[in-house]
Every structure is written in structure tokens, then in C-alpha cells.
């Protein structure tokens, strides 16, 4: 139990996907301008990360490893993620129209989000068990969601503040990310 907790905290806070592993920066800077969008994107990414980790765990341990074709993992994983995103999109469309409308445009983008392929590769590299993979995917996703939401709150305020012309937009967002990243060092002692 303790071990699972430390995997979770390690993924969510200490080695945060955005601030210390640099995974998923494109949606981070692209989508984090509005709080609502950030929340939707974060939830969608967390969901896909979790599902992808479970599916790729079974594929790795029951197909790739027994047949000694581990080197195929990059191709197989990206195909799995792309199809998973498609399935999730179709399922949400059929069952929950409101959710689909708010997530809609972000779902296809998740395929090329490095956080998703990243978590599956990290789980394989660390040789995590199924339960640990699930916990680490949840931790990574929730850490991603957390930072995306914090960032969008700050950026909504940055919009109305007086910033030097050449710092507007991406540079000031990067400076904000730097300060957040420094702050998250404070979690370093937790694991």
C-alpha cells in the first residue's frame, strides 16, 4: 500500500509530467488559456493515460514479451493509443453528449500527446506490475490535470496584466512554468 502511495505521489507531484519530465508541453501551452478547457483536457488525458496503461500492460506481457518482439513496442503502442482515443471518442459521443461537446475537439489531439505514449513507455521501462501501472498512470494524469488547471488560472490573470511587449504570450507562460517548477521542488522530500 505504502509503495503504491509513493508511486502515485512520485508521478503526480515529485516528478510531475509537465514540470519535471517535460511531457505534454504542447497541450500545456496551447490549451491552458481558459480554466474550463484546461479542466476538460486534463480529464480526457487522464482517462486515456489510464486506459492506455492497462491495455499496453496486457499487450506487453502477453504478446510482446512471450514472442520476444519487445522492439516492436513503439509501433504497437502508438497504434493502441490511436485506436483507444478513437474508441473513447465514439463511446463518449454515444453515451454523454454534454461531455462530448466539452471534450470533443481535444480528444483527437491526445494521440500525439507525449504524456500518453510517455506513461506507457515509463511503465514498461520500470517493469511495473498491473496495479502499479494503473496507479502510476492515474498519478501522472492527475499531476498533469493539476498543473494545467493551476497554469490556466494564472494565465487568465496574465491576460489583463501589463507585460513587456516582447514577453507577451509564450515567454511569460514559460517564466510562469519555471516558477511553478521551482515550487514543485518542494515536494521532492516526500518520496
Amino acid at each position: 500500500m505504502n509503495e503504491l502511495l509513493s508511486v502515485f505521489i512520485g508521478m503526480a507531484l515529485v516528478n510531475n509530467f509537465i514540470l519535471s519530465r517535460f511531457l505534454g508541453l504542447c497541450p500545456f501551452f496551447g490549451v491552458s488559456k481558459k480554466l474550463g478547457n484546461a479542466l476538460s483536457m486534463g480529464i480526457a488525458v487522464t482517462l486515456v493515460m489510464f486506459l492506455a496503461s492497462v491495455v499496453t500492460w496486457f499487450i506487453y506481457h502477453y504478446i510482446l514479451a512471450p514472442f520476444n518482439i519487445e522492439y516492436m513496442k513503439i509501433i504497437i503502442y502508438i497504434v493502441v493509443i490511436a485506436s483507444l482515443v478513437q474508441i473513447v471518442e465514439m463511446t463518449i459521443k454515444r453515451t454523454n453528449a454534454t461531455l462530448y461537446n466539452s471534450l470533443g475537439i481535444y480528444l483527437p489531439l491526445i494521440t500525439t500527446n507525449c504524456a500518453v505514449l510517455g506513461i506507457t513507455l515509463i511503465n514498461t521501462q520500470e517493469n511495473f506490475s498491473l496495479i502499479k501501472s494503473m496507479v502510476s498512470a492515474l498519478g501522472g494524469g492527475i499531476g498533469f490535470l493539476l498543473v494545467l488547471v493551476i497554469m490556466s488560472g494564472i494565465r487568465e490573470r496574465l491576460e489583463i496584466s501589463d507585460i513587456p511587449k516582447s514577453m507577451k504570450g509564450l515567454p511569460i507562460a514559460l517564466i510562469t512554468a519555471m516558477l511553478l517548477s521551482l515550487t514543485f521542488f518542494g515536494f521532492g522530500g516526500m518520496v
Binding site: 517535460f22 513587456p164 516582447s166 509564450l170 515567454p171 514559460l174 516558477l179 517548477s181 521551482l182 521542488f185
Partner: peptide, 18 residues
Amino acid sequence: LPPGAFLVLALLLALFRR
């Protein structure tokens, strides 16, 4: 460390714009 990466890119971008 990670914060340095954000800082260097931010300053380079701002410098190029300036």
C-alpha cells in the same frame, strides 16, 4: 534542472523578439 530549461527558452524567445 527543469526550471532552468523554461527560463532559458523564455529569455531567448523574449530576446529574439526584442
